[in-house]
């Protein structure tokens, strides 16, 4: 999966055992297909729809799905739900993706340093991890959302701040087990710098667990965005996100159930797909089952 992997193996990467195993994981494959389809739909779909996601038409409010060209109906302001859903997908998927990148970076950095250095550095860093874990994440998220202006970028940052700890723990544990291995000792004897050993020698060997954790983090981040936005602390209208499309849907549950059903179903499909992929990667990369 990386440069090092490639140089190690004469075969093409798609013939590698990991890829073979992943391809055999039918659910993971299904997840992969779904995510590609969803991403394409979200980023290309809006160009194919007749309505703009922000266009308000009060005469057309609460149109049920399949009325005219409103394939998925309209919302309380008469905006086209299909257009909003796809546009919301761009935002939600990006929030999920960038939150994953950010939290994985933070988590990996702290995990590698704590695991490699050990001793006091590790103790301090891991206590920080504990402190973050001792906060109910919902508290941190809601308080931060009230503190910072809830733009998509801020929501991404907030989600990342509350979800890097697991990666840090996993990486810490992995690195610690590698610390006394021959190649690390050899590196030290060759006089390589700690930074070099940590990030060039040790890190590539923990990529498997990191990739698995990262995939699951995307799923988690999409869910978290939905939770915060549903509670009204997240991405603010008129910008659509999957979560804020659901905010307020409860009020119209009787009159316009599609307002709740459509975005919720989409979230479930997206999150399930990422979880399937994560599961497939876990099997493929032969990572220990580290659920929770």
């Amino acid at each position: 999966m990386t440069a090092i992997d490639l140089s190690d193996r004469p075969n093409r990467w798609w013939r590698s055992r990991a890829v073979q195993r992943f391809m055999r994981h039918r659910l993971a494959l299904l997840g992969m297909v779904m995510i590609v389809a969803l991403t394409l739909a979200c980023f290309l779909g809006p160009y194919l729809l007749p309505y703009d996601s922000l266009y308000i038409d009060l005469r057309a409010r609460f149109a049920p799905p399949l009325t005219g060209q409103h394939y998925l109906g309209t919302d309380p302001l008469g905006r086209d739900i299909a257009a909003r859903l796809l546009e919301a997908g761009q935002i939600s998927l990006q929030v999920g993706f960038y939150a994953m990148i950010l939290s994985t970076l933070i988590g990996t950095l702290i995990g590698v340093i704590a695991g490699y250095r050990g001793g006091l550095v590790s103790a301090v860093l891991m206590r920080i991890v504990d402190a973050f874990l001792a906060f109910p994440s919902i508290f941190l998220m809601l308080a931060l959302a009230a503190l910072l202006k809830p733009s998509p970028v801020m929501i991404t940052v907030i989600i990342a701040i509350t979800s890097w700890m697991e990666v840090a723990r996993i990486v810490d544990a992995e690195v610690r087990s590698l610390r006394e291995r021959e190649f690390v000792l050899a590196g030290r004897m060759l006089g390589l710098s700690s930074t070099h050993i940590m990030f060039r020698e040790v890190l590539p060997n923990v990529l498997g667990p990191i990739i698995v954790a990262a995939t699951l983090t995307v799923a988690r981040a999409i869910l978290l965005e939905a939770y915060i936005s549903f509670l009204g602390y997240g991405i603010q209208p008129p910008l659509p996100s999957w979560g804020n499309m659901l905010n307020g849907a409860q009020q119209y549950l009787d009159k316009a159930p599609w307002l709740a059903i459509i975005p919720g179903l989409t979230i479930t499909i997206a999150v399930t797909s990422f979880n399937f992929i994560g599961d497939g990667l876990r099997d493929a990369l032969d990572v220990r089952n580290d659920q929770n």
Partner: peptide, 21 residues
């Protein structure tokens, strides 16, 4: 196995909303 994965992916509040509906 698949069901568990789906269950973990459903937003709880949405499941509640569907239940209420």
């Amino acid at each position: 196995t698949a069901g568990a994965m789906v269950a973990l992916s459903i937003p709880t509040f949405w499941f509640g909303l569907v239940g209420i509906y």
